[in-house]
Design a protein around this nucleic acid. Structure first.
Lengths: 221, 221
DNA sequence: CGTGCTGTTGTACGATCGTTCAACAAGGTC
DNA sequence: GACCTTGTTGAACGATCGTACAACAGCACG
């Protein structure tokens, strides 16, 4: 064989877009494996299989890479939940159930995922960049959950037409419902991740549905 | 004046117990101010007003200092809540209310306090030391909350004698109540710390009480 | 006042951090 | 096959990290 043809390339050039995404994925993977200590340029570049210098070619600095990873992580969560809701039958109850079941199942329900969130939250107060991403990215989640509750709560008599009686829900009740459901959801999710054996994911779904049910009775009953 | 008498001592010797506590306090203060990045030997020793070498004289290494700070932080929380409960009138409802009000008021309800918790949580999965402290220290909290619910839930007819009907609560219901209340509590607390303007602390107390009330209806009614 | 114990200091060390940058090379174009 | 663009490499830099340790000094005691 000709030596020239045998020699494998020492590296493979990638389009900036692809390489950036690979670095973001590596960042999240390092966060899962090593926690906060995994957030070093050398650890991340090793995980991505590239040299230390490459990160600063695609990102101006480390903080921007982390912020990009945070944005990606947030977006993936919202996208997954949204897809689950849209896959469900077109009834408010079914949509809520799909939302809850997606929240309490992989890939969201995972101690490793909690570990990632917790590191990001730890940066929240001291990194304006992270705070900015949080503010921009959390809106999708709030909108999704708020919209679901709005459709669900006024369900009084007219079964078929969901949006007919929208005016029945007072903004105050809707606000409380959203606050409470978010809290219960996050709290249960946190509990499960900290001690996965404590209860079944299906039990968490039922607890959340019971909460919304008690709200509905108070609003419409 | 005599020069000898004027010269101020360059430092003050402390009993090991006092100095250790001062270093623990400085650690928590640094955590509040600078987050995870405040956890450096130099930052902590500067906060405590001592030299860098002193920490390793009182603690074998940095991890042990952090673990001690975590234990102190946990113990303070449980002690504060316990004291609030014992200060309350001797009725299950009043005790629960005192517990909730203490949970949703300073010094617990503080974004800075969340920042401290979050950093500790971030170490949970990767530091056996932190995990050990967590396991040992969380028991007091669970026992307190569990005991309160146990007294509260069976309240059916006999108003005066709280422990008479204890057998009425099935272990299953009690377990669910504890899981749900903990989740709601933690979730609301988290929400408030992330966005202090979102709702009033008193509203959080009412949401928790409503949750326990709906449980009681299901159990005893 | 002298002595001893030990809490305290501050320099030093090696490791690792984020970032820079000159040199390299992959892969398309002509 | 020569050339060019640019994604990629890896050594080097200064800063900062946790820890070690010899010297210092506060203070109780005789």
């Amino acid at each position: 064989m000709r030596p020239r043809a045998v020699r494998a390339p020492r590296f493979e050039r990638q389009l900036p877009h692809r390489r950036r995404q690979a670095l973001i994925d590596a960042t999240i993977e390092c966060l899962k494996r090593y926690g906060h200590e995994g957030l070093s340029i050398r650890t991340i570049s090793a995980q991505a299989g590239v040299s230390v210098g490459l990160i600063n070619h695609h990102f101006p600095n480390k903080d921007r890479l982390i912020a990009a990873a945070y944005r990606h992580f947030n977006d993936e969560l919202v996208a997954g939940l949204t897809a689950a809701v849209e896959r469900a039958p077109d009834s408010p109850r079914a949509r809520l159930r799909a939302f809850l079941e997606a929240s309490f199942s992989p890939p969201n329900l995972d101690p490793e995922v909690l570990a990632v969130w917790v590191v990001f939250w730890g940066m929240f107060r001291h990194s304006p960049l992270i705070r900015r991403v949080q503010r921009e990215s959390y809106r999708g989640y709030v909108r999704l959950l708020h919209g679901m509750l709005e459709q669900l709560l006024p369900r009084a008599a007219a079964a078929g037409r969901r949006r007919a009686r929208r005016a029945r829900v007072s903004p105050l009740d809707l606000r409380f419902a959203a606050i409470g459901l978010t809290a219960l959801l996050d709290g249960l999710w946190l509990e499960w991740c900290l001690e996965p054996g404590a209860f079944q994911p299906a039990e968490a779904v039922r607890l959340c549905e019971a909460w919304v049910g008690s709200l509905r009775r108070r609003v419409a009953g």
